[in-house]
């Protein structure tokens, strides 16, 4: 983990109606350490408005060129301030943060279920998984409309991509669970997206005895473990409730540990 001033290489709108933006940063030390599933804290403004940094999942890691990408959706004051930053300006970045996805070496048949800006955090995982040519990867993406299915051109070509949109503008009309087969044979399922989607993916996986990892989002104060503000409700091995920090023990958790609240 380190705090640096990163140069903004690109900061542009990539979707007109869905308000998604892509920011590319030059942050060599962070890029060298980062792994898929980790996130950054970006400081939208040097002053105290907005006061808190914003967590952003890492969308692309290029350790060779020292570049990182994040994708964000305009949602409030923080992302509004971020969207106004220009190419060439610098931004304070803390990272890499959190645990990241873990990939069991023996997992060969793998499914990724994503929605919203969660799709962005699944991309570096998919690219990592695809490095092993013996792996078969299925990707199920869902969203309101085709505008909400970001990054779909960037997923590895050998992965099979299945898309569901609520308005039917891309893929099948409906939710991701249209593609949840009755007897899946996956070795592991990964999910990142809106809570109801992750809950469905987790139920599907666990009811078929397939290990599942989910990446959670929570309001964050610090992003690096000191404020204990970002907790999620989890159960320990005895089934007791305990609160874990999404920014430190997460954001990726084994699905069976998590209580999903909408």
């Amino acid at each position: 983990m380190l705090l640096t001033n990163a140069k903004i290489l690109t900061n542009k709108r990539i979707r007109c109606q869905a308000d998604f933006f892509l920011m590319e940063l030059s942050a060599p030390e962070i890029a060298r350490e980062a792994i898929p599933g980790q996130f950054l804290m970006l400081t939208p403004s040097e002053g105290d408005s907005p006061f808190l940094k914003r967590p952003m999942g890492i969308n692309a890691i290029d350790s060779g060129s020292g570049r990182l990408k994040v994708i964000y959706q305009l949602k409030g004051r923080g992302t509004a301030a971020l969207s106004k930053l220009r190419d060439g300006e610098t931004i304070e970045v803390l990272g890499p943060l959190g645990n990241g996805w873990s990939v069991p070496a023996e997992a060969k048949h793998i499914c990724l279920v994503g929605g919203g800006s969660g799709i962005a955090t699944l991309l570096p995982l998919a690219l990592l998984l695809a490095q092993d040519s013996s792996r078969q990867i299925d990707i199920i993406l869902g969203g309101k409309s085709s505008e909400h299915i970001i990054c779909r051109e960037d997923f590895p070509p050998k992965a099979q991509c299945m898309i569901a949109t609520e308005d039917g503008s891309l893929g099948r009309q409906g939710m991701v669970d249209l593609y949840f087969s009755a007897q899946p044979s996956y070795d592991i399922i990964y999910s990142c997206g809106p809570t109801p989607m992750m809950r469905k993916a987790a139920q599907w996986a666990l009811s078929n005895n397939i290990p599942c990892q989910v990446s959670l989002e929570e309001r964050m104060g610090c992003g690096y473990g000191v404020c204990v503000g970002c907790v999620c409700e989890t159960k320990d091995q005895q089934g007791h409730v305990c609160y874990k920090r999404v920014c430190k023990e997460g954001p990726v958790f084994p699905a069976e540990e998590v209580f999903f609240h909408d």
């Binding site: 006061f51 929570e218 309001r219 404020c227 503000g229 907790v231 409730v241 305990c242 609160y243």
Partner: peptide, 20 residues
């Protein structure tokens, strides 16, 4: 102590609220 349930943090103008 378990602490309070989430959400525990909210941003305010020039500050924040917490109920850790």
């Amino acid at each position: 102590r378990l602490g309070n349930p989430p959400p525990r943090i909210a941003e305010t103008p020039s500050g924040m609220l917490n109920s850790v």
